[in-house]
Design a protein around this nucleic acid. Structure first.
Length: 653
RNA sequence: GCGCCUGUAGCUCAACGGAUAGAGCGUUGGCCUCCGGAGCCAAAGGCUAUGGGUUCGAAUCCCGUCAGGCGCGCCA
């Protein structure tokens, strides 16, 4: 059989089988062909052919060499295949097709056995630390669907990094000093004439402020006196003058707690809340400014209109960005430059920290502080920084990367990653459906922007509530005799899966035109479809009584299967083996949607398979065992994908 | 005006420069004597906006045109 030898050669700890195999074959091919051809290492790339008749691994090497040597690709491919014949113990056969592709057919039996035996391995941890900043919602109103895309992407990104072995720290930046929060402080104190005690009586403050924020913005637009008062409130907050300052602190913290609770409903957690007020209080910018000035990155503006301002020249668009205003205050970008320098450990100072919140699973969130605090795990000092921020801030983010470079930090500049994604908009139909106003010129657009100022968006909690309600109804109609206590966690799990999958399945540069019908879809390309696949799979395993099977039995030989099943079986095994490669690809290409697509295609293949080949009814014990082990292997791999996407598997549904 | 992004089935979206451009929804027809129908099978539906170019090979890369979106503030 040769299975033993095969395993002996491949048992390298912590490596994914497919990746290891590709590297090994690659090395061998290069060694065998290097004398005859001029091959760069990067010329040799494997891909999975679309159809299995073209093999399990394929390379277009012959086409590349043909270009270099002005030979015919087909002849080169033939020669290569000849040379490699019988030289690769893992390969059953090599074929040339499609005018020059060299296609490799794996020896299936040992491949299957090895994959089975190594299925519980995890990837080794890496020494690099990654910071993912996401969510970062202004603490002046409830979170909406736009924020949900940010948080879901950020959370899945963090989970990808963890899966691949990185140390991950999730930060959420809190702008607790901006004009937006002054808007609602004015609204509560001046417009509604509430005192702090009255404000503290409001339950669900974030949702309450959602309406108030829209209302006061209308008021500012029509009444200059109100707008002037609001500017005054902002000034008072900056001067820490009460009652405005106290109200601001209270509101920021309460709304932040509401955001944390909203995101916790979706299993999204944070490690550190970095407050803008602490960036200011700790004088982070001053430390950065010394360096910026010394290197002449930040200079006094020559533009008469920007007299007295310190600016940075943004090279790509040849414009200058104000960093310090003529009145000496620092702009958002200035603070962000300092904050991001700190993330890389490039500022000669640090925050203090305090414990802010503990999740039911006992995970802690810390918050930055300006006064000397307790000792906590060291935050910051990242090797790589992902900032999950929508595409509209591209220019500011790329300005920060430019500044890192100019300050003599090429490494961090390279590892400063704006994880950019397109906005969530709404279809005009959806806006109308919600009874929200729509301008005449917006009627015929395919989508319109969401806006907190206009109160035009679906609140995150409302959407989650709707998803849970729908899940509950579906559950009720499918499961008689399910108690409310049993149904509740299942409904939540389904809602979370639907929402998280919906938010990750689109490419990052695709605008999501939000529509309830699509977001509430539980069929086809959706989170609940994935769950349903797994729930039924578990049901089969339960009935099969597989206790003990996992550790004892090996799959056996797929050659027992008839031709049709054999091909489908192998198709599953081969695709499952790509897990680690798929996650690496998603991260490297910033395309988390590819994970959704991959997971969905695995589930489709599985459904297709088991509808044709029943497990429990199978009389032949060897065949039954093959099918059962396939199910177990599928479960093992897909559970890992579910964990990354954030999908919980319900008991039933 | 300058910068970035997008145009693929009726609709919403996929597709490392690769082999016959794929899914879901919708439409039409079939499958519960079943391992749970949130499922499965099948059909119809495409000059990948458009005109050139590069390449053995282009939805994908380059140039032009048309259409749309976003950004460019002493806001954050």
């Amino acid at each position: 059989m040769g299975g033993g030898r095969f395993l002996e050669q491949h048992l390298a700890p912590g490596k994914c089988l497919m990746k290891f195999l590709q590297e090994k074959i690659k090395k061998r091919i290069l060694a065998l062909l290097k004398n005859d051809y001029e091959i760069a290492d990067t010329d040799l790339v494997f891909s999975l052919p679309a159809e299995r008749k073209f093999g399990d691994l394929s390379t277009n090497l012959a086409f590349i060499l043909a270009k270099k040597t002005k030979n015919k690709p087909f002849l080169l491919a033939k020669a290569m295949a000849e040379k490699l014949h019988n030289q690769l113990p893992e390969i059953e056969s090599i074929q040339v097709a499609g005018g020059g592709f060299v296609n490799f057919y794996l020896r299936r039996e040992p491949f299957l056995l090895y994959q089975w035996q190594t299925r519980d391995r995890t990837l080794p941890s890496r020494s690099e630390k990654v910071i993912v900043e996401h969510t970062s919602i202004n603490p002046n109103k409830a979170a909406h669907i736009g924020h949900l895309r940010n948080s879901c992407l950020g959370d899945i990104l963090a989970r990808c990094c963890r899966f691949l072995g990185y140390e991950v720290e999730v930060q959420n930046y809190i702008d607790d000093t901006g004009i937006q929060i002054a808007d609602v402080v004015w609204g509560l104190l001046y417009y509604q004439k509430k005192n702090l005690a009255a404000i503290k009586k409001i339950s669900g403050l974030a949702a309450y402020l959602w309406d108030l924020y829209a209302e006061v913005n209308q008021a500012f637009a029509v009444n200059e006196k109100f707008a002037a008062e609001r500017r005054d409130v902002h000034k008072k907050i900056e001067e820490k003058s009460n009652p405005e300052y106290q109200a601001c602190r209270y509101i920021a913290e309460q709304v932040l707690l509401d955001h944390i609770r909203t995101m916790a409903r979706l299993d999204i957690q944070y490690d550190l809340l970095a407050r803008e007020s602490d960036v200011i209080a700790m004088d982070f910018f001053k430390a950065a400014a010394d360096e910026l000035t010394a290197r002449q990155v930040m200079v006094p503006s020559q533009d008469p209109e920007k007299k007295g301002c310190l600016v940075i020249h943004y090279e790509r668009e040849n414009i200058e960005k104000i960093i310090v205003r003529s009145n000496g205050t620092i702009t958002y970008v200035g603070k962000d430059i300092a904050y991001n320098l700190w993330k890389f450990g490039l500022l000669p100072r640090d925050f203090s920290y305090r414990l802010f919140f503990t999740y039911p699973d006992s995970h802690d969130i810390h918050m930055t502080a300006a006064d000397p605090g307790s000792t906590v795990p060291p935050f910051g000092r990242a090797d790589k920084v992902y900032n999950v921020i929508d595409v509209r801030q591209s220019y500011l983010q790329s300005l920060i990367a430019q500044v890192l470079q100019q300050l003599g930090h090429p490494g961090p500049s390279r590892n400063f990653i704006h994880f950019s994604y397109e906005m969530v908009a709404m279809t005009p139909a959806c806006v109308r459906e919600m009874g929200l106003p729509l301008a005449v010129e917006e009627e015929n657009k395919s989508y319109v922007e969401v806006s907190g100022r206009k109160g035009r968006a679906v609140k995150a909690d409302d959407l989650i509530d709707q998803l849970i309600a729908k899940s509950g109804h579906e559950l009720e109609s499918r499961n008689s005799g399910l108690s409310a206590a049993e149904a509740e966690p299942i409904a939540r799990a389904i809602a979370v899966a639907a929402l998280r999958y919906f938010m990750v399945k689109f490419n990052l540069n695709t605008v999501i035109a939000f529509d309830f019908k699509e977001a509430l879809n539980f069929e086809g390309d959706s989170g609940p479809y994935l769950q349903y696949t797994m729930v039924r799979l578990n049901s089969i395993l339960k009935k099969a009584g597989t206790v003990g099977l996992e550790t004892e039995k090996e799959p056996g030989s797929p050659s027992l299967l008839d031709d049709k099943e054999k091909e489908l079986y192998w198709e599953m095994i081969l695709n499952l083996s790509l897990l680690e490669i798929q996650v690496e690809y998603a991260l490297a290409n910033h395309e988390l949607s590819s994970l959704a697509t991959y997971t969905y295609s695995l589930c489709q293949k599985f459904n297709h398979y088991y509808h044709q080949f029943p497990v429990l009814a199978e009389k032949n014990p060897a065949i039954k065992n093959l099918r059962l082990t396939l199910i177990l292997l599928f479960k093992n791999k897909v559970k890992k994908l579910f964990k990354i996407i954030g999908i919980i598997i319900p008991e039933r549904m």
